Measured scan of single mutants.
Amino acid sequence: MAAGGDHGSPDSYRSPLASRYASPEMCFVFSDRYKFRTWRQLWLWLAEAEQTLGLPITDEQIQEMKSNLENIDFKMAAEEEKRLRHDVMAHVHTFGHCCPKAAGIIHLGATSCYVGDNTDLIILRNALDLLLPKLARVISRLADFAKERASLPTLGFTHFQPAQLTTVGKRCCLWIQDLCMDLQNLKRVRDDLRFRGVKGTTGTQASFLQLFEGDDHKVEQLDKMVTEKAGFKRAFIITGQTYTRKVDIEVLSVLASLGASVHKICTDIRLLANLKEMEEPFEKQQIGSSAMPYKRNPMRSERCCSLARHLMTLVMDPLQTASVQWFERTLDDSANRRICLAEAFLTADTILNTLQNISEGLVVYPKVIERRIRQELPFMATENIIMAMVKAGGSRQDCHEKIRVLSQQAASVVKQEGGDNDLIERIQVDAYFSPIHSQLDHLLDPSSFTGRASQQVQRFLEEEVYPLLKPYESVMKVKAELCL
């Protein structure tokens, strides 16, 4: 049975990233139509530049190519590739079939990587351009969430054990800070992308030097003109047959890092959902379990974690691919890159769409948070109580021993009897502590235990987050809708 299948058929496997999760716009960027249309555009740009620099290419040939950029006979191309065992030459023939007058000058002087690699770089750039505003929107939604809850005390956790208090907004800023680093890295790697350009079979530009009869300047002009037509500021000066596969490492490393950030955020949300302090959106008709109707599973956060793990592992592909590119190139890269580049971007696209949807509907339960604080705060307040007693004339050592005994009794009630923490009640009825009984409410005010959390939130948002989001103001209103 021949390899390949009808990918629109229910009898043929289709990647869930495309069929179930990723956005239509990201799927289109990695589609065959987008790819092969870009090949034709690159052939047109090459012909236009070659004509401008004096090669015998007519206006009629150029116009014929322009008129057929979208006229792609995919069936013919597939048949040609089956016959020739070469995808680029299959599309040269297919393009030439609908451009008979231009057929002889299509791909003039070029090698397969002229269309293959340059198209990949265009796709990487455009895919990054799709991700950047999506990530900015996630940051914006979380920034709104953090600002609104900047002063809401909550129990902090280290080692997932109760620690000092923080605020809900401050905790959210930990998430935002990681995503801001990801946004900066995505922008950097996007701006650092260079075009492969017009380089020939081993990167020496020998074929173009021959076409222009040894004119170095025209060869350099050709490279520059096509690079500018493709919208790049610069091209690699040095290439082998391909652009260095280190570029793929750079791009997928940034995406993998984004995956790590999203995994951490969504894990926190899942843990908070278990504590009943916070939940992701839950639709009115949504079913959490087929057997347990009360369940409210954090399905979206779980999906993000599941896909983020996949995204983090994909960076190993370009690392290994770059390491086995012998001399000017081997074909070890080809099949692998067809999979890992598309999957990385479709996965990143999915987790950003999902995280935006989550961040637009996060639900906080202040009463649950308050109750958990009441359970733990008495123990945390013991040092403040000791200091207040010393100020009232008591002995630190005597007070410490009193607190120690009462704390152990209260802990026994919590752990052995399943009761509430009654340390404060014990202190309130103990005559030894009568000098500070009137101060206990103040000493137990949760806001006095959150330090500068709310001020940190305000400063972080104003100095770091809002300036970073400013270039994306025009796209901030787009909502994230999930079908599944």
Rank of each mutant, 00 (worst) to 15 (best):
A2G: 08
D6M: 15
S9I: 15
P16Q: 15
S19M: 06
A22E: 08
S23N: 10
R33I: 10
K35A: 09
W39T: 09
Q41N: 14
L42R: 02
W43L: 07
W43P: 00
E48R: 05
Q51N: 07
L53S: 08
L53N: 07
D59G: 11
I62G: 02
E64C: 12
K66G: 10
K66R: 09
S67C: 13
E70V: 11
E70W: 11
A78S: 14
R85T: 05
H93G: 14
H97Q: 13
C98N: 13
C99S: 08
T111L: 00
G116F: 02
L128D: 04
L131N: 09
P133W: 15
A136D: 04
V138G: 08
I139Q: 06
R141M: 15
F145G: 06
K147A: 13
A150C: 13
S151N: 14
F157H: 10
F157L: 08
F157D: 00
F157P: 00
T158Y: 00
Q164I: 11
V168T: 09
G169M: 03
W175S: 05
C180N: 11
M181G: 09
L183P: 00
N185S: 12
K187V: 10
K187Y: 12
R188A: 07
R190T: 13
D192M: 09
F195C: 13
F195S: 06
K199P: 00
G200W: 01
G200E: 01
Q205G: 12
F208R: 02
L211P: 07
F212G: 06
K224C: 11
F232S: 04
R234N: 09
R245G: 01
V247L: 14
V247G: 11
L252A: 14
A256C: 07
A256Y: 03
D268C: 10
I269Y: 05
L271P: 01
L271R: 02
A273E: 11
A273D: 10
L275P: 02
E280Y: 04
Q286M: 01
Q286H: 02
Q286V: 01
S289Y: 02
S290W: 02
P293D: 02
Y294L: 03
N297C: 00
S301Q: 06
R309Y: 04
H310M: 08
H310R: 14
T313H: 08
L314Q: 13
V315P: 11
M316V: 11
Q325A: 12
W326N: 05
R329A: 01
S334H: 07
N336L: 13
N336M: 08
R337G: 02
R337Y: 03
R338Y: 02
C340S: 13
A344L: 04
T347E: 07
D349M: 09
N353D: 12
N353Q: 09
T354E: 04
Q356W: 11
Q356M: 08
I358G: 05
V364Q: 04
V364M: 08
V364S: 05
I369H: 04
E370M: 15
R372C: 04
R374T: 07
L377C: 04
P378Q: 04
T382W: 01
N384T: 10
I385K: 04
G393T: 07
R396C: 04
R396K: 04
I403D: 02
R404A: 09
L406P: 03
Q408F: 09
Q408W: 07
Q408L: 10
Q409G: 10
S412Y: 15
K415P: 04
G418H: 01
D420H: 01
Q428M: 12
D430N: 11
A431Q: 14
Y432N: 08
I436M: 07
H437S: 11
S438C: 12
Q439R: 08
Q439N: 12
L444P: 00
P446E: 05
P446Q: 03
S447E: 13
R459H: 10
L461N: 01
L468T: 14
E473T: 14
E473G: 12
V475S: 14
